[in-house]
Design a protein around this nucleic acid. Structure first.
Lengths: 137, 137
DNA sequence: CTTGCTCCTCAAGTTACTTGAGGATGTATG
DNA sequence: CATACATCCTCAAGTAACTTGAGGAGCAAG
C-alpha cells in the first residue's frame, strides 16, 4: 500500500524530483515518512499526482491546477473549476489559431528558400526578407 | 540617425530591458555610446532587432535565431537557415495537432461540468473524472 | 530650479522544473 | 557477511528568456 517516491513517480508519470517539487510548493500536503525518513505514498497521493500530471499535459499552469485542486478539496465550488477550464480553453483556441498562421508563414519561407538559394550564399536568402520585411524604417 | 535605446526599442517592437538583454547575450555587437555613456542605435541595429522580434513571434528560440543571424552575417550558408526553419516547422505542426486534441478535451470537460454541477459542490464535478480517470491504479 | 522622463548598472525574480553535490540507506549477489 | 549498485535524502544552483526593482545620473520643459 505504501509506496516509495520512485514508485509514486512511475505510477503517476512524473519524475522523482518533480514529485518532491510538488510537495515543496504545496500541491501535496503532509507526506508521511517511514522510520528511515523516506516518503511514503498511498493511493490518494498517486491519484493527486496523476491529476496534476494530466493537467500539466493539457497545458494548465500550476496556479490553475492549484485552483482546481481547491475545488477538489471542497474549498471552492465546481463553478470555479468550470471557469478555470473555460478560461484556459479560450487561451488554447487563440494559441492554436496563431500556430496555424505561423505554420503557413514558415512553410512559405522554407519553400522560397529552397527555390532560390540552398547551398548558396546568404545574400539572396529570402528568409530574411520574409522575417524582417522593411525593417529599416 | 542615431537613436536612443528607447526609440530603438519602440521601432523594433521590443522593450528597453530586452534590447539591453540581447546585447548582453551577444545577439547585437558593439553598440556605440554617446559622450554621456548612453547607447546609440542606427538602422542596421533596428533592422536586426526587428528581425529578432519577428523571429521570436514566430516561436524561434534564441539559439535558433542566433544561427539564422550567423547566416545573415555570412558566417554560414543559406541551407542552414532553411534547416532551422524546417525543423521549427515540424515542431509547430506537432504542437498544433496537440492543441487541437486538447481543445476538444477541454470543451467536453466544460460542457459536462456545466450540465451537472455549476454552483453545486465539487463532489459531483465531472472535471476530476475527465482529468484523472482511474488514477488510483 | 524643480519636476518628470529616460538612461545607466547590477541583482534578483519569474515558471516549472532539472541537474548536481554530498551523503545515508536498501537490496541483490558472491 | 561484505561489497556493489540502486534509491533515497537535503540543499543549492542551473535552465529559458526575459521582467522587475534598487539606486543613481542626465536632460528637457515650465
Amino acid at each position: 500500500m505504501a509506496m516509495s517516491i520512485g514508485e509514486a513517480a512511475r505510477r503517476s508519470g512524473n519524475s522523482v524530483p518533480t514529485v518532491r517539487y510538488y510537495e515543496d510548493i504545496g500541491l501535496l500536503r503532509s507526506i508521511d515518512r517511514g522510520p528511515n525518513g523516506r516518503r511514503l505514498y498511498g493511493w490518494p497521493e498517486i491519484s493527486r499526482l496523476s491529476f496534476i500530471r494530466r493537467s500539466r499535459d493539457l497545458g494548465l499552469s500550476i496556479v490553475e491546477i492549484r485552483s482546481l485542486l481547491e475545488v477538489s478539496d471542497g474549498r471552492s465550488d465546481c463553478g470555479d473549476a468550470q471557469t478555470v477550464v473555460l478560461t484556459h480553453l479560450a487561451v488554447v483556441q487563440q494559441r492554436r489559431a496563431e500556430l496555424q498562421a505561423l505554420e503557413a508563414t514558415l512553410q512559405t519561407m522554407a519553400e522560397r528558400c529552397g527555390a532560390t538559394c540552398v547551398g548558396g550564399s546568404s545574400i539572396a536568402c529570402t528568409i530574411f526578407e520574409d522575417v524582417s520585411p522593411g525593417a529599416s524604417r
